[in-house]
């Protein structure tokens, strides 16, 4: 019998964030186990309560980021579990896998209705690693198990990707706003499509999208890399930067949770029935 909800983290060849993601889950009061992509039977037998696809470079981003992993057999299981309502989170490369699997936005079952295209920033191309700010859409806070605790504030999180620009077909552009979960903004909370607030040219400043039911969330920023306040850089403006400075002076720097923890504690709350 399980003492706590089990959140499994799926490691594909080339994933590289599975251990810190698993620790973030455990530090939030849940159990976590890492399964490799070819351990689908063992994973199924463990009766997970939720799934996380971590960041990294599954299959070395060959062909297109997330495209090959999306065709793996283990994704059949994740797909059917998500259809049954279990929470699924894809972080960065995990988000690319969810998009290529058609699990988000998920308007038509299994249909690929969006893309995470190469960053489009004037004057530069390729990989971008920096801290960004985002806010959580009100609807998403209500229906997404990963976002219940995130509140109305501005959250600083790191991004690190070359292909993170959410794109939709022309006919689905209106519909896309209903799938918005996380949106890039500046440190004051103002949305703008300009760099660096929107770091990759993403449509509608989208940093994360969800399915209609809200149980599947694909996000490009890395919450597990901002789980503790000590992970925040010293130059960060805003509320979380102030919190970081205060904890540094009060001696609680190493043990105080940061903005990324809210995504995982939201899920713990969800399983406790506190939302």
């Amino acid at each position: 019998m399980k003492s706590a909800p089990l959140v499994v983290v799926i490691q594909f060849p080339g994933s590289n964030c599975e251990y810190e993601t698993s620790r973030a889950v455990q530090n939030s009061g849940m159990d976590s186990c890492i399964y490799r992509w070819n351990q689908w039977q063992e994973l199924k037998d463990s009766l997970p309560d939720a799934y996380v696809l971590p960041g990294g470079f599954s299959f070395q981003d060959r062909v297109r980021a997330g495209a090959v992993a999306a065709k793996e057999k283990i994704m059949d299981l994740v797909f059917s579990e998500a259809a049954g309502g279990k929470p699924v989170l894809g972080i960065c490369n995990g988000a690319q896998i969810l998009v290529e699997s058609g699990m988000v936005p998920g308007w038509e079952r299994g249909r690929i209705e969006s893309a995470l295209a190469a960053n489009h920033i004037s004057g530069r191309s390729g990989y971008l690693s920096r801290w960004i700010f985002l806010h959580v859409a009100a609807k998403a806070r209500k229906i997404c198990p990963w976002l219940g605790r995130t509140g109305t504030g501005i959250l600083p999180l790191p991004i690190a990707h070359a292909e993170g620009r959410f794109v939709f077909s022309e006919e689905n552009r209106y519909r896309a706003s209903n799938s918005a979960a996380l949106k890039y903004c500046d440190e004051k909370g103002t949305e703008t499509s300009d760099y660096p607030a929107n770091p990759n040219g993403s449509f509608l400043n989208l940093a994360g999208i969800m399915n209609d039911r809200g149980n599947v969330l694909a996000m490009m920023p890395h919450p597990e890399r901002a789980y503790w306040l000590w992970q925040l850089p010293p130059y960060l403006p805003g509320e979380w930067g102030d919190r970081r400075d205060q904890s540094l002076h009060s001696g609680s720097y190493a043990s105080t949770k940061g903005p990324g923890s809210l995504f995982f504690t939201s899920l713990a709350d969800y399983f406790r029935g506190e939302r």
């Binding site: 065709k71 299994g110 690929i112 969006s114 794109v167």
Partner: peptide
């Protein structure tokens, strides 16, 4: 042409 999870691989027509 990748239109469904189990259909196509090399190109996502939404962005390519």
């Amino acid at each position: 042409v990748s239109t469904y999870r189990d259909h196509g691989l090399l190109a996502n027509p939404i962005s390519q």
